[in-house]
Write a protein that binds this DNA or RNA. Sequence first.
DNA 1: TTTTTTGGAAACCGTATGGTTTCATTTATA
DNA 2: TATAAATGAAACCATACGGTTTCCAAAAAA
Lengths: 110, 110
Amino acid sequence: MNQTRRDVFQAISDPTRREIIHLLARRTLNLNNVADHFTISRPAVAKHIRILTECGLVVVRTRGRETFCEADLKGLKQVSEWANTYQEFWNNKLDALERFLDENPSDENL
Amino acid sequence: MNQTRRDVFQAISDPTRREIIHLLARRTLNLNNVADHFTISRPAVAKHIRILTECGLVVVRTRGRETFCEADLKGLKQVSEWANTYQEFWNNKLDALERFLDENPSDENL
DNA sequence: TTTTTTGGAAACCGTATGGTTTCATTTATA
DNA sequence: TATAAATGAAACCATACGGTTTCCAAAAAA
C-alpha cells in the first residue's frame, strides 16, 4: 500500500475499486457508508479508497469525525481515449488495420 | 502466474503490457521481436504475453520454432464502454450528475 | 461527562506480481 | 551433422496486493 507508480489503469484494475467508483458516482458517501456495501472489512475499503485518491479518481473531504468520499472521474477520460485508440479492432470495417497504421505512424501513446 | 481471475482490466494495468499491445497493434511479431523492444528479459516478456492471451487480447500462433503474437483488441471495447459510463464527469456540461443518475437507476455494470 | 460513532494506523499474513537465471527442447541453418 | 536460433519451463526472489485484527484518538450524542 506504498506510494508506488499509482496510475489510473492500475487503480481500476481491481473489481472492488470499480464497484466503489460506481457507488460514489451516484452520491458522496462517508467511509462507513461505502464499507456497508461490501463484505470486506472497513480498513480494506479504506485502503481501496486511498488508492483511488492517489490517482485522483476520488477526493476525500473531512468534516467533523466523518470522511466524505466524492468521485472525480475526469481521470477516466485517459482510459477511454487509450482504449479508443484501438477502436478499429472492434469495428469490423475493412482495411481497419491499414487506417490504424496510417493514423499512428510512430510511437506516441505508449 | 496462475490462472487467477484474469480480466481485461487487470491485463492492461501494467505499462509494459500496454506497450506490448501498442507494438502488436501495428504488426504481428514473434516473441524475440517483441522482447527486443524492452530491457527486461525474454522470459519476462513471455509472461506478459501469456497474461494478454489469457484474456484474449493477444493470440499466439506457432509456426516452426517461432511463436507469432497477434493483437486481437476487441476486448478493449469493454474497457472503453465502462469508462464512457462516467463520461459525464469529464464533459463539464451542466446537470451532468442528474443525467447520470437518471440513466443509471440501479446496480448494473459493477 | 460518559458513551458511541467514525475512522486512522499499525502489525500481520498468504498469495500474486514482475522479474531473474539456468537448462532443456525443438527447428533451422552452415 | 554440428551448430545456432527460438522458445518453454522450472526454480527462485523481492516486493506489492488485498485482506485481516487490534488498538487508539477524536468528535458527536446520551
